[in-house]
């Protein structure tokens, strides 16, 4: 009841924090998707690079988020930039990995047929490879998005805004309703993203 009261009273604040949170995640995801797909595609043409890039992404993922923010903070300063940069780095691995393995998993006969028919590498990439890996990349995007919704909450500490502010303010004021509201809205956001992206994944899925 108290919680309900809190939420209805602070509704405009919560809404704008949610907007910030969503924007933070979306900006990071858009950059991570473009960067990750380009990187993932590029390393399929250069095997030693693939190992290095995947290993590096793996390490980036293990780095604790507070440490990541801490490392980037002196470089990019307090605020939005550091938050987005850290989120991009975290989101990179699932996208790069799925792009790379997706392309590697394409039936070699399909690629041979395409090449033998006279499609150039650019045509093969654009018309065959990329459309074929959409479902796999979508799965990676989903994993990454759900993950960084949670990490974005911590980004509030370095001034990147978003629903994490409710939690941090709640902790410092020892306000349970505020913490609860933050936790609930962040979780709900993660679940929403998960469901929407699952739906997209399903729609772009290819019957094989």
């Amino acid at each position: 009841m108290e919680l309900w009261h809190f939420i209805s009273e602070r509704w405009p604040t919560i809404l704008s924090l949610t907007g910030e949170h969503v924007l933070l995640v979306l900006v990071a995801m858009v950059v991570a998707i473009i960067l990750g797909v380009v990187l993932g595609v590029a390393v399929t043409y250069w095997e030693p690079g693939a190992r290095a890039v995947l290993y590096l992404c793996q390490i980036l993922m293990t780095v604790p988020s507070m440490a990541m923010f801490g490392i980037l903070l002196p470089l990019l300063g307090i605020g939005y930039k550091t938050g987005v940069a850290a989120l991009i780095l975290y989101a990179l691995l699932p996208v790069v990995r799925n792009t790379y393995t997706g392309i590697r998993a394409i039936d070699p006969a399909v690629l041979e047929a395409a090449k033998g028919m006279g499609l150039g590498e650019w045509s093969i990439l654009r018309r065959i490879k990329l459309p074929l890996i959409i479902p796999v990349v979508m799965a990676g995007i989903r994993t990454a998005t759900v993950m960084i919704v949670g990490i974005a909450a911590i980004a509030a500490f370095i001034g990147a805004g978003g629903l994490g502010e409710l939690i941090f303010r709640g902790i410092s004021r020892y306000n349970r309703q505020m913490i609860l509201a933050g936790a609930i809205f962040i979780s709900a956001l993660a679940i929403c993203f998960d469901l929407i992206l699952k739906q997209l994944e399903y729609r772009y899925g290819i019957r094989s």
Partner: peptide, 17 residues
């Protein structure tokens, strides 16, 4: 599955309360 979507920060904060 739902539990894993709850951010770690939220879990810590919740138990603090």
């Amino acid at each position: 599955n739902i539990g894993q979507t709850v951010p770690s920060l939220a879990v810590l904060a919740l138990f603090m309360t």
